[in-house]
């Protein structure tokens, strides 16, 4: 690249990173600052808000529920979406477009609209099936559909699933083997991306849980906010940091996996 342009670009990038870095980091710093405030303005910094997170049983329940929901939704999403997407690509390609359209619909139907429709369905579920908060996973699956579809679609189009499956089938593999032993291992980073988005969406979800009267992590933070603001904000910080490192970890894991595989394939 041209040196002059290079310098200009570097300066531009520095400005962007500094300005936006401030915009994005200041509120988070403010949360930490607020959560560690003592009782008076001049009293020393304290971590009581953070330590008291674990001592509130209701809060612990909400956290556990959200984590469980994240796991269930991820697994459910993989079980529902992945086989379908692979299957239609291999066997009913004329359904690829319609399925894509269905998966992307939740982007244009606001969650709050879906909640209005969910309300009677959840009434029925509560009476006839279970009133457990884990039932929320059924609704969350819809919310994560577009994000996970995109992630998996990117992975699938990077792998030549047709050739892979034809090769495996010609060696006598069943359809199930083709899917789980041949295709999925070849798109592990897409799968981990999809899970990552799933976890981020579920742990950040508030609308559906709140309006259907379930208390998940975000609802708990919100309720707590009106009473004990510093604990509530401490919890928000913890969950933010947790998801951030989780995402970072997954992104490195995904890369390590695809590296190892890439290396093996080349060898």
């Amino acid at each position: 690249m041209n040196r002059r342009r290079h310098r200009r670009l570097a300066a531009f990038k520095a400005v962007v990173y500094v300005v936006l870095g401030l915009f994005f980091l200041l509120p988070i710093a403010a949360m930490v600052e607020f959560a560690t405030r003592g009782v008076g303005i001049s009293s020393p910094r304290t971590l009581t808000a953070f330590t008291s997170i674990g001592s509130d049983p209701e809060l612990v329940d909400a956290i556990t529920a959200s984590l469980e929901l994240a796991v269930i939704t991820s697994l459910g999403m993989l079980a529902l979406l992945l086989p379908t997407m692979i299957w239609i690509r291999l066997r009913v390609p004329q359904m690829v477009r319609p399925v894509e359209l269905v998966c992307l619909t939740p982007l244009t139907i606001p969650a709050i609209v879906l909640v209005v429709g969910f309300a009677p369905i959840y009434n029925w579920i509560e009476i006839n099936v279970s009133d457990s908060i884990l039932m929320l996973a059924l609704a969350y699956l819809v919310l994560v559909l577009p994000y996970c579809y995109r992630a998996l679609d990117a992975g699938l189009s990077a792998v030549d699933i047709r050739t892979l499956s034809e090769a495996a089938r010609s060696l006598g593999a069943s359809w199930a083997t083709v899917m789980w032993r041949i295709i999925v291992p070849n798109m592990s980073s897409a799968v981990s991306n999809a899970c990552l988005l799933c976890v981020a969406v579920v742990l950040g979800e508030f609308t559906v849980a709140n309006l259907l009267n379930f208390e998940n992590l975000q609802v708990a933070i919100s309720i707590l906010g009106t009473g004990n603001a510093s604990v509530s904000i401490a919890l928000a910080v913890v969950s933010l940091v947790f998801v951030f490192f989780f995402l970072l970890l997954l992104s490195f894991l995904g890369r390590a996996l695809s590296r190892r595989r890439g290396g093996a394939a080349r060898a």
Partner: peptide, 14 residues
């Protein structure tokens, strides 16, 4: 990834 999904309540507090 975090911030785009973690809007919500957290953000208001922040």
């Amino acid at each position: 990834g975090v911030l785009s999904q973690f809007g919500g309540v957290t953000l208001a507090f922040a």
